[in-house]
Design a protein around this nucleic acid. Structure first.
Length: 354
DNA sequence: TTAATTTGACCGAG
DNA sequence: CTCGGTCAAATTAA
């Protein structure tokens, strides 16, 4: 707080950089739609965007770590104090538990607002007998299903299997599309803070038994992807952001920062939502071992090759396609908490930048 | 047996 | 009030 003056100035600079980055991203978007646009131009725009965000991030990095982390710790502390009763999933019924529960409710709903959300459309090819294409590499546990007004199909609610054990608050909703039942809209929210079993490179004869994730190891992108790989990946993710209507600030920026912005002591056990986790939570959609498919991201080959498992993903395109195409149709609605917040500061969203 | 799913009840937001 | 999201007991699967 005493540093507010410093930080205030810094914030302006950061905002400037981010704004600039945003503009550049817009331009890039335009260029991407223009067949006449040259590769060099695009590359240059990307570079400029990167530079912008790296600057911004280094500014943030100077200042914000401690504060942000405190937010995390506070959030987690509350949670961990209430999770023990439910460790085994056993029902809670006392009045005292009730209090806890209420508290939890408030906390969770508060939390929920700060969780990043994004939607993907996943297409399932008919003929695979695949009803539910949604093995995205993480283990999810269904906790509800609801009929949604105006929707033909019910919406399924899933949370991370490791929620109780590892306080992993990632959730997703799966909604089958009315128009095209082969399309599922998957809305992810929150990041996986759980320690998923490390990505196992499956043997070549590995068969798409994707109906059940089961005890299988979900794949988790490596904890600390090298920076340049992140950058590549970043550019590949760019397309997602085009689905934004109100919000332009999104993943890629985030990714670019991660590797150098992350303090090494930030391990997964300490349930802070951090870049890496965020990575982990979206990446499976790209590299899912089971619902892999044609995708419409502009994956740069180098980026692809940087990630174990993505090659695998590349090879098998028969199951599903991730139709996160964007441009005009906002198939991917990135719904970030700060999307509509003109007063957005990173401090307000500790889970996002760490 | 444990773990996951189903499904009606419950709750908060609007 | 309605609606969407979550809880949790009952049920099913492994």
């Amino acid at each position: 707080m005493e540093n507010m003056g410093d930080w205030g100035k810094n914030k302006n600079l950061v905002m400037n950089e981010l704004t600039q980055g945003k503009e550049l991203a817009k331009q890039l978007q335009i260029h991407l739609k223009m067949p006449s646009s040259s590769h060099e131009t695009r590359e240059m725009l990307i570079q400029m965007i990167l530079t912008s965000y790296e600057k911004a991030l280094s500014m943030l990095n100077c200042k914000s770590n401690s504060e942000v982390e405190q937010h995390h710790v506070a959030g987690i502390a509350i949670r961990s104090s209430e999770s023990p009763p439910s460790l085994t999933g056993s029902p809670r019924s006392d009045d005292s538990d009730r209090d806890f529960k209420d508290q939890e409710h408030k906390d969770v709903s508060k939390k929920r607002k700060t969780l990043p959300r994004w939607t993907q459309r996943v297409r399932v090819n008919p003929g695979t007998g695949l009803e539910d294409p949604l093995d995205d590499g993480f283990s999810w546990r269904k906790y509800g299903q609801k009929c949604i007004l105006g929707a033909k199909y019910p919406r399924g609610y899933y949370r991370c299997t490791h929620r109780n054990v590892q306080s992993c608050w990632a959730t997703k909703q799966v909604q089958r599309s009315d128009e095209d039942p082969m399309i599922f809209e998957v809305t992810y929210s929150g990041s996986h803070t759980c320690r998923q079993a490390p990505l196992k490179i499956l043997p070549s004869n590995q068969e798409p038994n994707r109906t059940s994730i089961g005890p299988q190891q979900p794949l988790q992108i490596m904890q600390q992807p090298p920076p340049d790989q992140l950058l590549n990946f970043q550019s590949s993710l760019k397309v997602i952001t085009e689905g934004l209507d109100t919000c332009e600030l999104s993943f890629p920026y985030h990714f670019a920062s991660t590797s150098n912005a992350m303090p090494p002591e930030n391990n997964v056990n300490q349930p802070s939502i951090n870049d890496t986790d965020f990575m982990g939570s979206i990446s499976p959609s790209f590299i899912s071992p089971s619902t892999s498919g044609t995708n419409y991201f502009s994956m740069s080959p180098s980026g692809i090759n940087s990630f174990q498992g993505i090659q695998n993903f590349n090879d098998r395109s028969e199951l599903a396609e991730i139709t996160t195409s964007a441009s005009n149709s906002p198939t991917v609605a990135l719904d970030f908490p700060f999307a509509n917040d003109p007063n957005f500061t990173f401090d307000n969203y500790p889970g996002f930048f760490s």
